[in-house]
Amino acid sequence: MGNVQAGRVTAVSRDGEHRFSKGVTDVITLLAGLGVEGDAHAGTTVQHRSRVAADPTRPNLRQVHLIHSELHDELHEQGFGVGPGELGENITTRGLGLLDPPRGTRLHLGSEAVIEVTGLRNPCAQINAFQPGLLKALTPRDVDGNVVRKAGIMSVVLVGGQVRVGDPIAVEVPPQPWRALERV
């Protein structure tokens, strides 16, 4: 299946420290196999503090975090004030069904960078310290009582390159059978 133009980058963010939110910047550089240059979550093995404590040798499947700006819109309608980078994402998108593609989908960002989707972000209670009630808004339950994770997707960098606001995003879906995204 060929690449399909699907959306655009609306913001890019990074932070060299382990803080909840990341600062918005003009450009980020993705490094193959590592993540975002200068970001605290870059590395070949897990970098999230809770995961390092559990097993620091596990591969880092959370090198780059993406959130769709449509989620920001939805949260604003519910009374939350959330902007790009504030939920810890590196790349904010628009016009892309970000939670829909199967695991292994490749996203071509701009003219160089390629990332592979590894799964859904599993938000933690730390989100409620940012804004009370936000965790529940990001993890509602469906009619069967299953948690629906809306806090974006995680990915690894296959091909490095710079990513800027306005860059197009093309989607390359893997061959079937497809595997649904699960939390990582």
Rank of each mutant, 00 (worst) to 15 (best):
R14G: 03
G85S: 09
S111M: 15
V12P: 04
A137K: 07
L31A: 05
E86G: 06
L66E: 00
G81R: 13
F130P: 07
R164S: 15
V36L: 00
G104I: 06
P168H: 09
G97Q: 14
L98G: 01
G166L: 03
Q162W: 04
R51K: 14
W178I: 01
L134N: 04
T45Y: 03
P56N: 09
V165A: 13
P56D: 08
W178G: 11
Q47I: 00
V157Y: 01
V163M: 02
T139A: 11
E89W: 02
L61W: 09
G110W: 11
T25W: 03
E172W: 05
P132E: 03
Q63Y: 01
G83M: 01
S13P: 03
P177C: 02
P177R: 00
S155M: 00
I28N: 07
N90F: 06
E70S: 14
A11V: 07
V184R: 11
V143K: 13
L96N: 09
F20W: 08
R94Y: 12
G95L: 04
H108T: 01
P56S: 07
T92Q: 08
P84Q: 06
N128F: 11
A53W: 10
V117F: 11
G88C: 08
Q176L: 14
A113Y: 07
A129H: 12
K150T: 05
G145R: 05
H108G: 02
L71K: 10
R14A: 12
G110A: 11
M1P: 06
R19P: 06
N122D: 12
D55F: 09
M154W: 13
P101E: 04
V148G: 00
V12C: 02
E77C: 10
L34R: 14
T25L: 04
A170Y: 08
L181E: 03
V4K: 05
E182W: 06
I115L: 15
I28G: 01
R49N: 12
H41L: 15
I115T: 09
N60V: 08
E70P: 04
H76M: 12
T139V: 09
G97W: 13
G43N: 02
G16E: 15
A11M: 15
R179Q: 12
N122V: 11
V171W: 10
D142G: 05
E116F: 10
E86P: 02
R94L: 14
Q78H: 08
R179G: 04
V4P: 06
D73S: 10
R58E: 14
L75E: 01
A42V: 07
R49G: 07
D26F: 08
K22Y: 04
G7A: 10
H108R: 15
A6H: 11
D100V: 11
A180R: 12
E112I: 06
G110N: 05
L87W: 02
V82F: 06
K136W: 05
W178K: 11
T44Y: 03
T118A: 09
V148K: 06
D39F: 10
A113E: 01
R49H: 09
V36P: 00
R179N: 12
H76G: 04
V156D: 00
G166V: 09
N146F: 12
P102D: 00
T45I: 09
G35V: 01
S13G: 05
G110Q: 04
A42I: 05
